[in-house]
Simulated assay, not measured.
Amino acid sequence: MNVVKRSLAVLATMAATAGVLTACTDEQAYCVDLAKYAAKAVDVDPQKPVDYVKILDEAKKLQESAPKDVKDDWGVVVTFAEKAKKAGTDAAQLAELSKQTGGVMTAYKNITSQAKDSCKVDLPALN
């Protein structure tokens, strides 16, 4: 019976360790993706909605893998980028979107802060 208890204890420890390693790996993967995103986002002017289309695919990926504390913020960025994509080259729609950048910039500031604190990644500054 002792062998069974030891085996169960070892299995339980291994399962717990695997869970911790998986969480760490997920966060590391998010940080790596965030660093890749940072390199692409250098050319994005947060005041120009059309620029958000450039980062839409990366933002969607980051929204899926983001930690809980910034997942909603990524949702704000993705939603805005999708609206910009839908607007296309329509100057009137893009002008209207330009008036709505405040919420996106707030979300981006939260993402930037978390990126620096948790991932040691510097995202391009907002203008």
Rank of each mutant, 00 (worst) to 15 (best):
V3N: 10
V3L: 03
V3C: 02
V4R: 08
K5D: 02
K5H: 04
K5Y: 13
S7I: 08
L8W: 04
A9P: 02
L11T: 12
L11A: 15
L11Y: 01
A12F: 13
A12T: 13
A15W: 11
A15V: 14
T17N: 01
G19L: 12
T22H: 08
A23T: 06
C24I: 01
E27N: 14
Y30G: 06
D33F: 01
D33C: 03
L34N: 09
L34D: 05
K36A: 06
Y37C: 04
D43A: 10
V44K: 05
K48Q: 15
K48D: 13
P49N: 05
V50L: 11
V53H: 10
D57E: 02
K61S: 13
L62V: 09
L62G: 13
Q63W: 03
E64L: 14
E64N: 10
E64A: 15
S65A: 15
P67E: 10
K68C: 00
K68M: 05
D69Y: 03
K71P: 03
K71W: 01
K71H: 08
D72T: 08
D73Q: 10
V77T: 01
V77S: 07
V78W: 00
V78F: 03
E82Y: 06
K83N: 13
A84F: 01
G88Q: 11
D90M: 09
Q93W: 02
S98M: 04
S98N: 06
Q100A: 15
G103Q: 10
G103A: 14
V104I: 09
T106C: 02
K109T: 15
T112V: 00
S113F: 12
Q114Y: 11
A115I: 01
D117G: 00
S118N: 08
D122G: 02
P124F: 07
A125Y: 00
L126Q: 10
